[in-house]
Design a protein around this nucleic acid. Structure first.
Length: 1156
RNA sequence: GAGCUUGUAGCUCAGUUGGUUAGAGCGCUACACUGAUAAUGUAGAGGUCCGCGGUUCAAAUCCGCGCAGGCUCACCA
């Protein structure tokens, strides 16, 4: 059997073949089943949301996941990895609405909730195909056959169970807050969603400095000079649409305010305005400061102003003003609103130092209004509920007559361009205020404003009823548990995540949507009684009670059959036996989604009807519940969690953007309910940017299609590039050129090395059936590469274990390219050409085979395809490993006995000396250089210690062969061409002398020849009051000027080249050149390596003739020539030039060994 | 505005507990080598280690203040 030889390697094709092989032979399944009963390594897959196309960054994230799962499998662990789909939530709903051409308003009108959710369910999985393809193509092993799906009833049941646990601890409560609300999406947004990258955007809004007219009263009297004075308080806002809802003005009690006499820029009326002293310059031009009020004409651009009064904020609190936009008012408002109140958050960084307060549209506003007993501006809707002046679509209600039905932000308009002379509400309000003498200044203002991550539209702060998880109650525990997690990189855990935990706020769980997990809480209308349902069976029983009470006719939850006993677990939850549960869920006869659960009315302990709270829960809770819900805990697989088999995870990995997302929700639920971390190790990956470092986005058109990339260059090379280029937690500037480079350099080298092996092993029919040549009996260079190999195993194992894939990949790459290919193989080529398969050749094959096989195993977590292909190729012939696949093997074990640091140093010396010699050849003969084919007599290595000398002696042959030199001569450091210089060893002396270092440095540098000799030989010397010992100084031997030398500073190695070319050397050089030319002729003629040839030549030069005659045997062997003859007239010969000589040569094939 | 993070050659990145000539690969230039050949070797050019200050005998490395990029947070009027 032959080793597979690759001519043109097509990575994509190779990968497709391997995928087929995995598929057919169920290799992934076996990688788990073959580890049955072994220690488990638990991995959680963060569920991708099944509603978008995968991008190249998913390849990154999944490569990391895959690497460690594969690594741990090789290390003998059983690594189950269940895929999952995040199926609920807004993205899906928006997609459906887009597909059906409806908006949220239409739900329940044009389309029933039932049909709507059916659509969602259908849509949700429409991307799974493409995701499965990506998963497969990139070689990510995860169990796609049996994924957890968040909309399944069993998943929901576990979530309900968890919510009930929180409810029991009083960690689930209903509250009223001002929250970010997305009118376009029709839902409140959690802080997580506001944290989505790009949520905060710089936008330019119309900002208005409004004039609030002060009412005269005892409190405000001091502000008025006379009866006619028009005194206005200036307040700035970037949200003009909140002005009709203004209910108060907040000032800083300690801030200094001033009254300024001036004119209104739009109406030109004289006014007096109040603002913070610090901000005068922002609103009045410095150039106008000398203008007189009485000179003002309305055409003037510069408006004069005069500061006439100064006072503290506390002096004007409780001052009342006229409602700015009096659309809605009532007795309560007239009594308690429209006054100046103190606000601790007021600053003079911006605006006027007076904050316009609309309590229903700002969290701070709400708080400060409450504290000061300022009522909100509200109206009654059709059902008689109090609602704000802006409805949930973001439109003004009818009471705001001038703007009724208008969107408060232009961005909500479907198609504003279509409206002739469209003006945004902001602008309309500005115009109105200007006309009414209520606007002091209107201008565009650029600031950062939060946007809805899905609709891309600005959010509003809006009053909403919500359910919260009291995460603040568990803050200390969560912080504490976080310290036990191994974060990669550490700073994400301690810094980013740690700070987030320190500043934790309660988790807003409510979503006003349709497609998601319903909050399992039923309440009486007065809100005094409520029940949280923790399982389907509990719901079933509750409905039964309700039927008895006459509130329900029948039980939609379905039947539970064969209930023998109902257990109650420690905290009161009812648990049925697993078979009852599984029988029930197999039937799937009731859907726990809306609208079905909404139809259920339960009965309260006091006999009142209880209705379900309408909210759905935050989808982040879905995914945070994944460790338990994927197992349908505790209804099934209870032990897996309780006995800590599949919990917590040993390892998870997601993008750093999940810090406040999945990482947090996992952590919060595990900490609050299971008193445990949810994961022990976490790798948070950075962003994948484009080659210029910009974020990839569809809009910019710079998104990289993972399929295209992998089709063109292969998944392995893409994976390797991503891992080896930079640490996964650093942002990756994805450059396709980098992928190509990896492909060309590393993969090319690996392939070449394999091909080299395969070519010759096939010729020799080497199948590793020969007895293993003991390592100790192999040549020095074999033992060297094996030593390096074992060092590599140790390193790589450590790197993987530390979750440092980049270091692992780089180490493998360096070994493969530098040590194995460019040194071992290059230096040993002739061992493989030898005709006979003797011990030495077998050792060479075995060594190279071992290296290849080991590299493949080490690299297989990162490059699963290529490693598999080459492993199978090797193993198919040798049958050395019983494993069916490289991914079913075990990780190479380091053999410490083979690691020989002394040998590694010897080889380093050989490499350095060779390199130095090459560089000397280059500059020899006055920079003309002496080509390597020209043999030279010797190199001289001066002044090395005895150990180094003996080490060099040991690798002498290698150096000589590599550099085409005949001999190495060592000369002692007492030779007269060597001079010694000395310099201080800063590290040692610095510790000893500290401040005196400068002085000591001077003394050491001033050592004369004798002093250097003394400390070199005796090891001690005293000078200028300092005692030096050998380790205090570094003595370097250098060659005197006038010699051509090269030296290596690290090793204190110096080489001198003997440039003399004797006639013998000259002839030998000619012979080697001749061989080279003949080889080229062979190649040009397309001859096989095994062809035997005859050579005839003709030269007029005696030296050439002589050279070829002298080296007849050498030439014959090298060129596989059976004859080499001097012949006068050669027909059809080639003219060759060697140095200054010309000769004619002709070669012909005489025989082919293989054909004989 | 705050937290975290990054800043080293044209590009992508190393650089250990601070130690005196700051490295690699790619790219570029030149030369060489050539039965692994779309490979390889040698050399060259290329650096304000983001800036400024400080600590220290000694700073790419430690500290402070800035600048620039990235991510995240923030009720910001």
């Amino acid at each position: 059997m032959k080793y597979n030889e690759y001519k043109d390697l097509n990575y994509a094709q190779l990968e497709a073949d391997i995928l087929e092989f995995w598929e057919e032979n169920q290799i992934f399944e076996k990688s788990i089943s073959s580890r049955e009963g072994k220690k488990t390594f638990t991995f959680y897959e963060g569920p991708p949301s099944a509603n978008g196309m995968p991008g190249i960054h998913h390849v990154m994230a999944r490569t990391i996941k895959d690497i460690f799962c594969r690594y741990k499998t090789l290390k003998g662990f059983q690594v189950k990895r269940k895929a999952g789909w995040d199926t609920h939530g807004l993205p899906v709903e928006l997609k459906v609405e887009q597909q059906l051409g409806i908006t949220k308003d239409d739900i329940g009108k044009k389309i029933s909730v039932e049909d709507y959710n059916k659509e969602c369910r259908k849509t949700v999985m429409q991307f799974t195909d493409i995701w499965s393809k990506l998963t497969q193509k990139m070689g990510y092993w995860v169990d796609m056959g049996n994924p957890y799906i968040t909309y399944h009833n069993d998943y929901i049941e576990t979530v309900w169970y968890l919510l009930k646990k929180l409810h029991e601890k009083d960690w689930l409560y209903k509250g009223y807050t001002i929250q970010p609300f997305s009118p376009k999406a029709g839902t409140g947004l959690s802080s997580h969603e506001l944290n989505m990258p790009g949520a905060y955007k710089d936008v330019t809004d119309t900002s208005i400095v409004a004039q609030f007219k002060v009412k005269r009263s005892e409190r405000s009297e001091f502000l008025f000079e006379n009866n006619d004075e028009d005194v206005r308080i200036l307040a700035w806002t970037t949200t003009p649409w909140t002005l009709p809802s203004n209910c108060a003005l907040a000032v800083g009690e300690k801030i200094t305010y001033v009254k300024v006499k001036t004119f209104n820029a739009y109406t030109h009326q004289p006014i007096s305005v109040i603002l913070a002293k610090d901000l005068i310059s922002k609103h009045f031009s410095d150039k106008a400061k000398d203008l007189k009020l009485e000179d003002y004409k309305k055409e003037d651009k510069l408006i004069p102003f005069e500061v006439v009064q100064e006072f503290k904020g506390s002096d004007i609190t409780e001052v009342r003003y006229e409602q700015l936009m009096p659309y809605v008012t009532n007795e309560e408002l007239e009594k308690n609103a429209f006054r100046v109140i103190p606000g601790d958050f007021v600053t003079t960084a911006d605006g006027t130092g007076v904050v316009h307060t609309a309590s229903v549209f700002g969290a701070d506003d709400y708080r400060v209004a409450q504290q000061n007993n300022v009522p909100p501006v509200l109206v009654k809707d059709e059902e008689g509920n109090n609602v704000p002046l802006v409805d949930r679509q973001g439109k003004f209600v009818k009471e705001v007559t001038d703007f009724a039905g208008l969107y408060v932000k232009a961005e909500y308009e479907e198609n504003p361009e279509a409206v002739p002379e469209y003006k945004s509400t902001d602008v309309l309000i500005s115009i109105k205020l200007k006309t009414d003498n209520k606007a002091f200044k209107v201008e565009k203002y650029k600031h950062s404003y939060p946007h809805c991550w899905r609709t891309d539209k600005p959010i509003l702060y809006y009053p909403l009823d919500s359910w919260f998880i009291r995460t603040t109650a568990a803050k200390d525990k969560l912080v504490q548990l976080n310290h036990t997690i191994n974060w990669k990189p550490e700073s994400t855990g301690t810094g980013r995540f740690g700070n987030w935990l320190e500043n934790l706020v309660d988790w807003n769980l409510s979503r006003q949507r349709y497609w998601g997990i319903p909050l399992p809480i039923w309440r009486t209308e007065d809100g005094k009684e409520e029940e949280c349902i923790g399982s389907v069976y509990e719901l079933y029983e509750a409905v039964e009670k309700s039927i008895k009470a006459g509130l329900m006719q029948e039980n939609p939850v379905g039947e539970f059959e064969n209930i023998k006993e109902v257990k109650t677990d420690d905290d009161g939850s009812t648990l049925l036996s697993a078979d009852v549960i599984s029988a029930y869920f197999k039937r799937k006869n009731f859907d726990l989604h809306r609208p079905y659960v909404d139809d259920i009315v339960l009965v309260s302990p006091n006999g009142k009807p209880m209705y379900r709270e309408q909210d759905l829960i935050d989808v982040w809770f879905d995914s945070g519940a994944m460790p338990y819900a994927q197992l349908h805990y505790p209804f099934q697989n209870k032990d897996m969690i309780d006995e800590r088999d599949e919990f917590p995870a040993d390892f998870i990995s997601e993008g750093v953007d999940q810090t406040r997302g999945w990482f947090f929700t996992l952590h919060a639920i595990a900490g609050m309910l299971f008193d445990s971390v949810a994961f022990k190790n976490v790798v948070s990956t950075g962003l994948v940017l484009d080659a210029e470092g910009r974020k990839m986005s569809k809009r910019l058109g710079n998104a990289v299609d993972p399929f295209e990339t992998m089709d063109a260059h292969g998944a392995d090379t893409t994976r390797w590039y991503m891992i080896s280029n930079a640490n996964p937690w650093d942002n990756l500037k994805f450059d396709i050129e980098g992928v190509k480079e990896v492909s060309r350099r590393f993969f090319g080298t690996l392939k070449n090395t394999y091909s080299f092996f395969a070519t010759y092993a096939n010729l020799d029919e080497f199948d590793y059936s020969q007895t293993e040549v003991p390592v100790a009996q192999r040549p020095e260079i074999d033992r060297w590469i094996l030593s390096k190999l074992n060092t590599l195993i140790k390193q790589v194992d450590g790197f993987y274990d530390d979750f440092e894939p980049t270091k692992a990949a780089r180490a493998i790459q360096t070994f493969t390219m530098d040590d194995l290919s460019n040194w071992y193989v290059r230096l040993n080529r002739n061992r493989f050409w030898k005709t006979k398969l003797n011990d030495d050749k077998v050792a060479a094959y075995q060594t190279l085979y071992t290296c290849l096989e080991t590299i493949l195993k080490l690299a297989s977590p990162v490059m699963p395809f290529m490693s598999e292909a080459l492993f199978l190729d090797l193993n198919k012939v040798s049958g050395r490993d019983q494993s069916e696949s490289i991914h079913l093997t075990t990780f190479p074990e380091v053999n410490e006995d083979i690691i020989d640091t002394d040998l590694e140093r010897r080889m380093t010396l050989a490499q350095k000396l060779s390199s130095l010699t090459h560089s000397l050849r280059k500059t020899a003969k006055g920079n003309k250089g002496i080509r390597v084919r020209q043999p030279l007599q010797k190199i001289i290595v001066p002044a090395v210690d005895a150990t180094t000398q003996s080490q060099i002696e040991a690798v002498k042959d290698l150096i000589l062969a590599e550099t085409n030199i005949k001999d190495i001569e060592f000369i002692g450091d007492n030779s007269d061409i060597v001079v010694k210089s000395i310099k201080p060893n800063f590290k040692v002396l610095g510790k000893k002398y500290g401040k005196d270092m400068k002085k000591v440095q001077g003394i050491v540098n001033a050592f004369n020849k004798d002093e250097i000799a003394t400390i070199d030989s005796t090891g001690t010397l005293s000078k200028d009051g300092f005692d030096f010992v050998a380790e205090d100084v570094v003595i370097v031997s250098e060659v005197k000027e006038g010699h051509s030398v090269a030296s290596d500073p690290d090793e204190a190695l110096t080489v001198i080249l003997d440039e003399t070319i004797t006639e013998d050397l000259r002839k030998e050089g000619i012979a080697r050149d001749f061989v080279n030319r003949v080889q080229n002729l062979r190649k040009d003629a397309g001859m096989e390596v095994t062809d035997k040839i005859g050579i005839v030549f003709n030269s007029t030069d005696e030296l050439v003739k002589d050279a070829l005659k002298t080296h007849h045997d050498y030439i014959s062997t090298e060129t596989q020539a059976l004859s080499l003859a001097d012949q006068a007239n050669i027909e059809g010969g080639e003219t060759l030039e060697i140095e200054e000589f010309t000769l004619t040569v002709k070669i012909e094939v005489l025989a082919n060994v293989e054909n004989n």
